[in-house]
Structure formats: structure tokens, C-alpha cells
Computed example of a mutant assay.
Amino acid sequence: MALVWRLRRRTVLLLPLLGVALFPPEAGSSFSHSLRYFCTSVSEPGEGLPQFIAVGYLDNQVICRYDSNCRRSSAQAPWMEKADAQFWNTETEIMQFKEEEVREHLTTLMHHYNQSEGFHTLQVMYGCELRGDRSKGGYYQYAYDGRDFISLDKETLTWVAADVQSQILKRRWDANPLIADFTKAYLEETCIEWLKKNLDNGKETLLRSEPPVGKVTRRAVGGGNEVLICQAHGFYPKEIETTWRKGEEILEHETFRRNIAPNYDGTYHTWLSIEIDPKERDLYLCHMDHVSLPEPLVLAFKEPGDNIIFIVGATSGILATLMLVSGLVFFIQKRQTKLKKWPEICQYPGDSKIPRVSSVGSDCSTKPLHPEDDGYSSSESNQNSTKELLA
């Protein structure tokens, strides 16, 4: 599967296209979780750009970081701090080995390409996935100077070369089958084990579910037609199934979709549109199915003015209620002025448990009894982005 690899002098960006193993086509019907790493080695490091840098992601959230300057893996998510010292020591050892390995490969490739100097890069992307049906996925890929270079075919345990120069490395690695065997074992066993462990540490964040908020809008297009746009935002996890329907018919071929994208708060948003004849507008419905919903959310387009009557009615009701409350308060205050004595509960200075009756206007120097005085306390409720690490 093709990847987009972009590298700048000061900033490293690794942007895989949707469709790789981490995002299976059946996503939406069940949970899937992934653990993946992006590693980059450069021939000419500079200020703000280490010679080697690696970032780990769990379900698209940054969880750890390593670079050649500090030479130690560190937590990048609060819940990753739950991991013990042995975990971080092992993670650091793996990344130190990976740093040396990738730098050696970069030097070798520069020699093969007759590039003794200049700015060159070698990038590695690998990871594993645990799908909702308990099946496993994984991949291991290299890119040189922003182009696909070589990758592992996990089924045949062979390496797939992307160009003539990568054939040299392919023949060398294929001649040593232990390299492919070890890589497959890591992706299907060790990586999955770490994925489960990290999920357990971050389950309050990663295993939560937040329902989508949806709405349908429209805009006119040429030929007298219009486009209906169905938007869903604020949902988590990422998997969601959205469709346009006309009656019972699912209009997949007529639908234009936008890729699911992250929000700043860790949730996601997406939209889908369809071009229709305005005369048939009422026949089209947008369906959203998400794990957080007890049943699919079904939306139709409504003119902005459809809610005016409701809003006016609600406003009138609120005003009437306020007038009634004001009248009652006035009545009670007027009634109280006619009473010369009104009981009030006070505390004795020496005994907070004994109530005392006094009169309004008397010198009651102690405060009225409150539930807190008897040992009671009121309860308070407490209430957690995708950090973009490489910028």
C-alpha cells in the first residue's frame, strides 16, 4: 500500500494514507486497536532535527518518544507513566538498537546510490493491529529519500523491493530467512502483547466511547440540483459507518466521502455528501452507526425556520414562569412584613448541637446550622489531544 512520506530540513512529517493495515475496510462494525512506530534517520542533523528520532502511537495518540540526543524513551501521554521502570528500560534498549540499525542502513544506501554527501533520509514504519474479530495485522516498511524502498510480505516471508537499488538489500535479506521470521514474530506476538498492555494502562482514555453529533445542510449547484451534506463530529473511537439512503436503498456509489479526521480534543469528525433533485429532498436520510449509539442516528434536512415556532413557544413559556415566580416572591415578602416574630434556628456559642429559637431582629451572633456542622459535606464532581510531537 502506497505511503506518503514528507521530510523537511527542520521538521519530520510521516503521513500514512488511510487504507494501510491499521485501518481495515471492515472498520466500523467493531473495535480495532493499533500500536505503531515511525522512525527517521538523517544524514545531516541540525538544530531541532536529531540524527535519529522515533515516535510511538497507540490508536493515533502519541505515547512515547526517543531521539539520538537524549537516547532514552519517554512517556508522551499521562497514562503511559503507569508503565514500570522495566518497561521503559526495555523500550529504550529497543530504540537504541533501532537507531544504530537504521543509521547503518542509511550509510549503506547512500553508498549504493553513489551519494557521498548531501541531505538524505531513511524512514521506517512498522506496527501491529488487533481487530474486533480477534484477528491480527502487521506491517514493516522502509522509505529512502521520501520514496517507498522495501517492505515485508508477512504471508510469504519475503521482502518486496520497490526499485532496482532495493533489489540488493532484498537478495541479502531473503538469503537470511531468520530476518523475516524474527520480524513476523515481533509483529504478531511481542507487538500485540505490548499493545494489550498499553491499552490496559490507558483504558479510561482509549476504551471510552463518545457519540457523534450530526447535522444535515444543503447548498445549490448547477443544473437546478443541490447537494446535501451530512456532518458527524465529536465521536470516539474513530470507526463509524455513515450512509445516505433513499427509502431502503443505500446510495453508496452516489455518495462523496471525506476521510475521517481527528479533532484537537482527541475525537473525530467526517462528512459525506450527495447531489439530489430538490423536489425529492424529503426522501433522503443520513444514517450514522457508531459503537456509542444504542441505535443508528437518522437525520434529514430541515429548513432553518422549522424551529422558530418551537423557540418562540419555549421563550414565551420561560417568560411566563419568571413572572409567576416574581409574583410569588413579592407575595411572600409582603406576608413576612406582617409577622412581628419569625422563628430562626441558631447555635448556642458553647454547644453546636443544641438549636435555639430567637426572634427576627434579635442579636443572634451565631451562624445558622448547616449540614456541614454535623459532619456532612457536599459532593463535587471532577472531570482529560493529540499532541503533535514533530512540528
Rank of each mutant, 00 (worst) to 15 (best):
R8Y: 08
R10H: 11
T11E: 14
L13G: 07
L14E: 08
L17M: 10
F23A: 14
S29V: 11
S32F: 04
L35T: 06
F38L: 09
F38Q: 15
T40R: 11
P45E: 08
E47M: 10
G56S: 13
N60F: 04
C64H: 07
C64Y: 04
Y66V: 02
S68C: 05
W79I: 03
A83R: 00
T90I: 01
M95K: 09
K98Q: 14
E104C: 00
L109V: 01
Q115Y: 02
S116D: 11
E117R: 07
G118C: 10
Q123D: 14
Q123P: 04
Y126M: 13
R134M: 12
K136S: 04
Y139P: 00
Y139I: 06
Y144H: 09
G146F: 02
R147P: 08
R147C: 09
S151C: 03
S151T: 02
L152S: 14
E155Q: 13
T158F: 04
V160R: 13
Q165F: 08
S166R: 01
S166N: 09
L169Y: 08
R171C: 13
A175N: 13
P177W: 04
D181A: 09
K184D: 15
E189K: 12
C191A: 13
L199F: 04
D200F: 02
K203F: 03
E204G: 12
L206D: 13
P211W: 03
R219S: 01
G224L: 00
I229F: 01
A232K: 06
W244Q: 14
R245C: 11
E248D: 15
E252W: 05
E254M: 12
P262W: 02
D265H: 00
H269I: 04
E275H: 02
D277F: 01
R281D: 04
L283T: 07
M288C: 11
P304D: 12
G305H: 07
G305W: 01
S316H: 04
S316D: 11
L319P: 01
G327E: 11
L328E: 10
F331E: 15
I332N: 12
R335F: 05
L339N: 04
K341Y: 07
W342I: 15
P343W: 01
P343H: 03
P355K: 00
R356T: 08
R356P: 01
V360H: 05
D363Q: 05
C364W: 00
C364S: 08
D374F: 09
E380P: 06
Q383C: 10
T386N: 14
T386S: 13
L389G: 09
